[in-house]
Nucleic acid binder design. Structure first.
Length: 371
DNA sequence: TATCCGTGGTT
DNA sequence: TAACCAAGGAT
């Protein structure tokens, strides 16, 4: 009996959420809105996949322009598979978590070669793709292929821990959260349900100051009933970020070209471009690091930058020198002024170069000249 | 399970 | 302003 009434409650909440979604869903470039979906329009798995990879730990606003550029340049997975890896890294530069871009290419290659250009249409098949984890496999299965997959992202974790007042800290609470979502899942609209939960978390059930008055499922929310939804989700305490120091050397040739090199394929900023730098150490001895310059020159300290990574902070001293024309070492190259803005430079490296040469990494504004 | 892996916006 | 956080994955 209790099982029956709780399943009724779940059905009612799912229905209320979907009704809210029909009216208040976000309009997003990669999304098929509920009305179009109901009319039979099929989502493009490539677009769903591309957007999901880009959205991993990344805000919607940050993704939009990258998504548009990728889609215009590589409209299908076959074209992305045929692309040059360096071009993909250049197009991804600034978006962060660069292993995503490396896996994006690996995944496109696999789908093109082993799957005939078609994405697997099951959660299990999708999960086997590089860069596709539990969340992304479930999201693509539900959104692109209408599979009844249990989709749990950060938004949904917040919504569910509040709805059921789950005080178990994350990530230990994940199993219980998935069970709750599973019990609520409407099998006729799994994709819309997942996106509705995410929209609710993004616009109503926000981390701070949730707009509970606007919530379509506030009636059943145990956290609201108890008085303070902001208490959820409970998360394990974070560790303190250590601070590392280093130096970057921006060598400028007579024609304005800057000496760059490619970082190792794995690890931090893997496969991306950078001006030569020292190792980044945790020592706080105040050493300048100028003796670690890539070659002897008159290195002038132009300032230092502070950059916050996920698990450490970096202070980088920036040196600049005028360099005579010389052969770039193996794996290094001179990047001319018109090439520099398009290089695969992570934000921290753009910041470093900007400190040495203001404006160097910014795309010059196209000027309309009278014919 | 814990750690590594970016960036920019919000409060 | 320091802290928090975003449609997580790989190892």
């Amino acid at each position: 009996m209790t099982g029956h009434s709780s399943s009724n409650r779940n059905e009612n909440q799912a229905a209320a959420l979907l009704a809210w979604y029909d009216q208040h869903h976000r309009e997003l470039p990669w999304r098929v809105p509920p009305r179009d979906l109901a009319a039979g329009r099929k989502p493009d798995a490539y677009r769903v996949w591309l957007s999901e990879i880009m959205l991993q730990q990344t805000t919607v606003e940050a993704v939009k322009s990258y998504y548009a550029r990728f889609l215009e340049r590589w409209p299908s997975v076959m074209e992305l598979a045929a692309a040059d890896s360096d071009d993909i890294m250049k197009a991804w530069a600034g978006l962060g978590y660069y292993s995503r871009a490396r896996n994006l290419k690996a995944c496109a290659d696999l789908v093109a070669d082993a799957h005939g250009g078609h994405f697997p249409d099951t959660e299990e098949g999708l999960r086997a793709l590089p860069g596709v984890g539990a969340y992304t496999a479930a999201a693509i299965a539900a959104i692109a292929f209408a599979r009844p997959a249990v989709v749990v992202d950060g938004n949904i974790e917040r919504v569910i821990t509040r709805l059921f007042a789950i005080s178990t800290p994350l990530p230990a609470a994940k199993t219980e959260i998935k069970q709750r979502v599973q019990a609520m899942l409407p099998h006729d609209r799994p994709g819309d349900f997942a996106q509705a939960m995410m929209d609710l978390g993004a616009t109503v059930c926000t981390p701070r100051r949730p707009k509970c008055l606007l919530c379509p499922i506030k009636k059943g929310c145990e956290a609201l009933l108890a008085g303070d939804p902001e208490l959820y989700p409970v998360k394990a305490a974070k560790r303190e970020k250590p601070r590392r120091r280093g130096a970057a050397f921006v060598a400028v040739r007579g024609d304005g070209a800057v000496l760059l090199r490619k970082r190792p394929a794995k690890g931090l900023l893997g496969d991306m471009a950078e001006p030569p730098t020292t190792d980044w150490t945790s020592r706080a001895d105040g050493e300048t690091g100028v003796q670690a310059a890539p070659f002897p020159a008159i290195w002038a300290m132009k300032g230092s930058i502070h950059h916050v990574f996920t698990h450490f902070e970096l202070v980088l001293d920036i040196y600049r020198a005028q360099a005579v024309s010389c052969e770039a070492p193996e794996g290094w190259w001179w990047s001319k002024p018109d090439e520099l803005p398009g290089e695969a430079l992570p934000s921290v490296m753009k910041k470093a170069i900007e400190t040495a040469i203001p404006g160097a990494t910014r795309q010059p504004h196209p000027r309309k000249e009278p014919e």
